[in-house]
Design a protein around this nucleic acid. Structure first.
Lengths: 351, 351
DNA sequence: TACTCTAGTGCAAACGTTTGCGTTATTCAA
DNA sequence: TTGAATAACGCAAACGTTTGCACTAGAGTA
């Protein structure tokens, strides 16, 4: 039975010999109370039997709301994002919203055009996980008046809804952990500084070190050109070249940390014996690794949930004026890639 | 500058003192040739300047096509699917299509309701990666007349577009590999048999063994209740209990293979010395694992591409009558979880 | 000059909803 | 018995497009 034509309100109305407006009201939860109970019953029964499904396009055209949102992800291959998406979906489902998925390829240009496409599709809001520290997407959304919430990566300008984790705290925990283990000559492989998380984590590193009266010299910091494995390997290679004495490294990212591993191997160094490594994000399956990575864990799923909730709230109440910032707590998970500084090396605090 | 109201065709028309129909035609690539060139130029210039964006809802309502499709994924946490999605997106982008993302949680019921929601949203087609061997979703799509293509998991009834990989060949390669290494007492941890891949891989296992005159006894096969790590561990435990003599195992899935690892550990067995393990799918980051898993690799990204191409083709040409099946080739990637059978054990073929 | 053609535009209907307002029928109070 | 009040429903417009058809003006032909 191939029913090529969808059944419409009018079909139902004609079948029941009533007006389409009555059918519409009877089907709506809100306005069904202005219709007599038995008509409501008959309409709903008929709708059920004839397989009526509301035409989303017509609804959207009439109401100006599509009950859809867009998600922009820098890269699905990064295992951090699936759980976030999962969290978003879980709350969206409860409110009858559906999500478009788009990639930015970590490129602001494509992010911009993707957002334009989504806006043109009439999304009610956007969850943006691919922000740079200055990003034209937020201006675009503001000018079009469509709700936007930033996840994880935020933007320098303050007036926008965000849900992020306390990166500074995370780095502080990582540094403290290494300090506890006796490490002093600690390096940092930073991510691109036009991304907030990279920038913030780097600053938190130097600041935390400073709080312990440890000054970090410039050669102790190398910036990877991307938050990826390859970029991490490359950066770690130059780091090792100029830091033969370093005993521990903090990577801006788990992926970068992986790159550090392979660079380490190329130098014939072992982890954690020769050098401790700590990452950031706690990507899945880390426990299975040859040397399980110590890393700071962030509540991916919860981040997704919170951002969806925030967005929905903004969509409902149209007060774009005020913005909210939800800050989630990270957690250090200690595995095998960090170990106490071996006694054979002479310990020297910074002068 | 918050421009709350989107600019419409009528806005453009009034601004240029022409009719909306002329504007519409001037903007359309097809029908712009029936409009005088300089009007076309003026219209497009104005559209550019005033920031006109076509209202997708109105277009969809009028034309009956939303230029959207839906993707149903059993579980995003399974690292196999992100690359597939990536592949789908890559071709969708080229044709101006956008994709909804939904989960089935490996549950036919929720898959069904999600598909209904997507259909109600007016998607032009659906890519379904979560099929069971008999699945009401394909009947649903057929009855509604909306194009459907199955990826990876297929369905017993034959008359539907699918893109899958040659699972039988994959298993054959795995078996041959183990045989080459000298193994004879080989077990199989199957997935739920209501999923095509599980079923096909299991059959391929017994058949390949038979082709080598090796009969596989029933206790050599244990079915996990899901394609997950936990289920794999559980199944492997019962397997090890009833197969103290087995020297190799094939898992229906990488995730199940991981479960096998932990069950192995609980029995105090080592891999690959005491037992070889081979998985299926070649999920990311396997190279990093403590004992890198030998597994059969499938072309995830390409699967996504092909399925999107197939779907788009079906959407264009409305011939739902004929269906196509594209079959991709797997590849065995040998890592460290498989090793030659140690000589100390007495080799015995099956009687 | 009068005719037909055609290129270029305008008119208006339609897609399927929702909703303000008008209409009818019923109830209740006086 | 009459009035107003209320409950239930119908009418029609509107959301922003696309497109078949009608219309106009200028060009070409006889």
């Amino acid at each position: 039975m191939v029913q090529r034509k969808r059944v419409t309100l009018r079909d139902l109305a004609e079948h029941l010999n009533i007006n389409t407006s009555t059918v519409s009201r009877a089907l709506s939860e809100k306005s069904s109370e202005m219709i007599s109970p038995d008509v409501v019953k008959r309409v709903r029964k008929a709708a059920q039997e004839m397989g009526y499904k509301q035409n989303a396009a017509a609804y959207a055209l009439k109401m100006g709301s599509t009950k859809t949102i867009g998600m922009i992800i820098p890269d699905l291959m990064n295992p951090v994002f699936p759980p976030i998406i999962r969290g978003i979906q879980s709350v969206l489902d409860q409110y009858g919203y559906t999500a478009f998925l788009a990639y930015s390829e970590n490129n602001e240009g494509t992010a911009h055009t993707e957002v334009e496409r989504l806006i043109s599709r009439g999304v009610d809001g956007i969850i943006y996980a691919a922000a740079f520290r200055t990003d034209s997407v937020v201006d675009l959304c503001k000018s079009q008046g469509i709700p936007l919430v930033l996840v994880n990566r935020v933007v320098d300008q303050g007036d926008v809804d965000t849900v992020k984790v306390d990166d500074s705290l995370g780095i502080k925990m990582a540094v403290d952990h290494l300090l506890d283990l006796g490490h002093r000559k600690i390096g940092f492989i930073a991510g691109p500084k036009n991304i907030s998380v990279s920038y913030i984590r780097l600053r938190a590193f130097t600041r935390t070190m400073a709080e312990h009266d440890l000054e970090v010299e410039p050669h102790r910091i190398v910036e990877a050109h991307a938050l990826s494995e390859a970029a991490g390997e490359q950066a770690m290679s130059v780091f090792l070249g100029q830091n033969p004495d370093a005993t521990a490294i903090i990577a801006s990212n788990d992926l970068i940390a992986l790159g550090c591993f392979t660079a380490l191997k190329q130098f014939g160094y072992t982890c954690p014996k020769r050098m401790s490594i700590v990452g950031f994000n706690n990507m899945p399956y880390l426990d299975w690794f040859a040397t399980p990575l110590t890393t700071v864990s962030i509540p991916h799923f919860q981040m997704g949930e919170r951002s969806a909730e925030l967005l929905l709230k903004r969509i409902k109440a149209d007060n774009v004026d005020y913005n909210e910032e939800v800050l989630l707590k990270p957690k250090l998970v200690i595995r095998k890639s960090t170990a106490p500084l071996i006694a054979s090396k002479k310990k020297s605090g910074s002068t």
